[in-house]
């Protein structure tokens, strides 16, 4: 289970920066699936948002890290302070 606090922060960033309705976004929602429907431009925005929130660089990170809020949070946890 990924860190709740990190998940909340990422969720807030996605709601704010990508205009995803808060009530449709769970920590395990498939971000790039049909419902939320993120695309490559959104992933640039996620990279920028993660960088500014946590100072973690995700440029070039493998695609599976971007699957859900939880996978993003896990990546952040593992790479924070590097």
């Amino acid at each position: 289970m990924a860190n709740q606090e990190i998940c909340e922060k990422i969720k807030g960033m996605l709601v704010e920066n990508l205009r995803i309705p808060e009530d449709e976004l769970e920590f395990d929602s498939e971000l790039f699936g049909d419902d939320i429907g993120l695309d490559s431009i959104d992933s640039i925005e996620i990279i920028a948002g993660i960088d500014s929130l946590f100072g973690v660089q995700m440029t070039g990170a493998a695609r599976e890290n971007f699957r859900t809020i939880e996978t993003l949070a896990k990546y952040v946890e593992e790479h924070q302070g590097e």
């Binding site: 990508l18 205009r19 995803i20 309705p21 449709e24 419902d35 939320i36 429907g37 993120l38």
Partner: peptide
């Protein structure tokens, strides 16, 4: 409200952009 766009088959994934 969400019905305003859903009524025309517009998905949230498109609309939120």
């Amino acid at each position: 409200i969400s019905d305003d766009y859903k009524e025309h088959g517009i998905k949230m994934a498109f609309y939120r952009k």
